[in-house]
């Protein structure tokens, strides 16, 4: 009985939550440093694409993971350049990077595979079995420990909460924000990679399909704290699982349950909790502000 619950519900929930958890942890670090990160969606998409391409090429998923992280990192550094150096508005630039990222996979897949946004299928023995799960658990533990117990975590938090204080301690606020942005890129890229080479066996068009935004919602519901953020990801992962499981299932009456209503649950929950169950100023105080 217990084993059945584990293999039918708990393990699958953990699996589908994995991309969300990586991306959300990245988003949390970035926003904690004081930079809004609505570009998670685009980073995941690009990470998923390059992970699939490199895994297909090398037949080794570890190279794929590396490619996903690296491409996410590069994209986020571009974002950092525009918002930290070129003074672009963070929400505007984030939207721009999301649009830009949507164009990259179809552009390159046309050149490499003559397809409009998908990659060749990767054979099963070149895919991960469960390594990303352990990676995910490790990054949750590391994030929580570094957030609560390290100088690094404290300084990132100060960059987002009280940049003046950090500055007067002689530490560069901008430097901390670069680190936060870089973390979000690498982690969201890793999250994207798990979409294409762990949960699937190739990249398909617009594969992230809103998961970057769900991850962002999880950060907000988790009040920008590591463990609550992960809990929110698990909740959203569970609704995703429900949505898959209830496809075509008749629960009452004669019609199957419309999956659309389950699809919108994470977004609905986010709005309701945000509006009615959370106090006003939970966000890092300097979030979105310029120095």
């Amino acid at each position: 009985m217990l084993e059945e619950v584990f293999s039918n519900w708990i393990l699958p929930t953990l699996r589908v939550s994995t991309p969300l958890i990586f991306a959300a942890l990245g988003g949390m670090w970035c926003e904690r440093s004081g930079v809004v990160q609505i570009g998670l969606e685009g980073i995941m998409l690009v990470g998923a694409f390059f992970a699939a391409v490199v895994t297909h090429y090398t037949q080794n998923p570890w190279w794929g993971i590396g490619a996903g992280m690296l491409s996410g990192l590069l994209l986020s550094l571009g974002y950092g350049l525009t918002v930290l150096r070129l003074k672009a508005n963070q929400i505007v630039a984030g939207t721009a990077f999301n649009l830009f990222a949507m164009g990259i996979p179809p552009f390159l897949s046309m050149i490499w595979y003559d397809s409009t946004g998908s990659t060749p299928v990767i054979p099963g023995d070149a895919l991960f079995r469960s390594a990303p799960l352990f990676l995910m658990v490790a990054s949750v533990v590391l994030s929580a420990v570094f957030y609560h117990r390290s100088k690094f975590g404290l300084r990132i938090r100060f960059a987002g909460e009280h940049p003046k204080a950090l500055e007067s301690a002689g530490i560069s606020v901008r430097g901390k924000r670069w680190q936060g942005i870089a973390l979000s890129g690498a982690l969201a890229g890793l999250g994207g990679a798990t979409l294409s080479i762990y949960l699937a066996s190739s990249f398909s068009r617009n594969m992230s399909s809103g998961r970057g935004f769900i991850a962002l919602a999880a950060v907000i519901l988790g009040k920008w704290l590591p463990l609550p953020t992960v809990a929110a990801c698990l909740l959203f992962g569970f609704t995703e699982l429900l949505q898959i499981r209830l496809q075509g299932v008749v629960l009452w009456g004669e019609q199957p349950v419309p999956v659309q209503w389950i699809q919108i649950l994470p977004y609905l929950i986010t709005i309701v909790v945000l509006a009615f169950a959370m106090g006003r100023s939970r966000a890092p105080k300097a979030l979105g502000g310029m120095e």
């Binding site: 525009t82 672009a88 505007v92 630039a93 721009a96 990077f97 649009l99 830009f100 164009g103």
Partner: peptide
């Protein structure tokens, strides 16, 4: 998508 993104960045990057 690529061009739209770049146009936004071109206009938004006041710096």
């Amino acid at each position: 998508y690529i061009i739209q993104g770049l146009i936004i960045l071109g206009v938004a990057s006041d710096g």
